Computed example of a mutant assay.
Amino acid sequence: MRGMVYLLIATIGEVVGTTALKASNGFSNLFPSIIVIISYSFSFYLLAQSLKTIPLGIGYAVWSGIGTAMTILIGVLVWKESLSLAGVLGVLLIFSGVLILNLKGTVAG
């Protein structure tokens, strides 16, 4: 359970870092650039901690999949980026994939 909590917090850190990456304007704005470095460091640390108890495939699927979907939503809501029907379908597929991996509990391999 602790691993999943770490993973979800790591995902939030990754989303904060990615959002700040956009605001950093190619690392030309100091404050958002500092947030990027801190957020990604925090996110990778917690991701590594979560992988002590969560299989790699599931951990990475949750971290990257939910992070991608949340980042797309922030892009639409904060940065006023457009989202096509294909984009909406893609986000739904990401959520479906993460859900299926978590319901199964393991990654075949």
Rank of each mutant, 00 (worst) to 15 (best):
R2N: 13
Y60N: 02
Y45H: 03
G97I: 06
I12P: 02
V15Y: 00
M1H: 05
L92I: 15
Q49F: 09
Y45Q: 06
L103K: 08
L93P: 11
V5F: 11
V36G: 08
I38P: 11
K104N: 08
L8A: 03
M4S: 02
P55S: 10
L93K: 08
I100L: 15
I72A: 13
S39D: 15
S43H: 00
V36Y: 04
V76R: 09
I72K: 01
L101K: 15
I12E: 01
F27C: 00
W63P: 03
N29S: 01
S28E: 01
T18M: 12
L8W: 05
T53N: 10
S43K: 00
I35S: 12
G90R: 07
G109H: 15
S82R: 10
G67F: 00
G87P: 07
T106I: 07
G65C: 10
T53G: 04
V98C: 09
T68S: 07
L99A: 06
L93V: 13
P32G: 02
A86K: 09
V76A: 00
F42C: 06
L21H: 15
T18E: 06
V107G: 15
S84F: 11
S39E: 09
I66Q: 02
Y60D: 04
K22F: 04
F27N: 01
V78Y: 13
K104S: 08
G59R: 13
M4Y: 13
V98F: 00
S41C: 14
Y6L: 03
K104M: 04
I66W: 01
M70P: 14
L73C: 14
S24L: 06
S39Y: 12
I72V: 13
A108T: 08
I12D: 03
V91G: 14
V16L: 12
V5H: 09
I12M: 09
Y60M: 02
Y45C: 09
L7I: 08
L56M: 12
A48Q: 13
T18R: 11
G17P: 08
G90V: 03
T18W: 06
G26V: 06
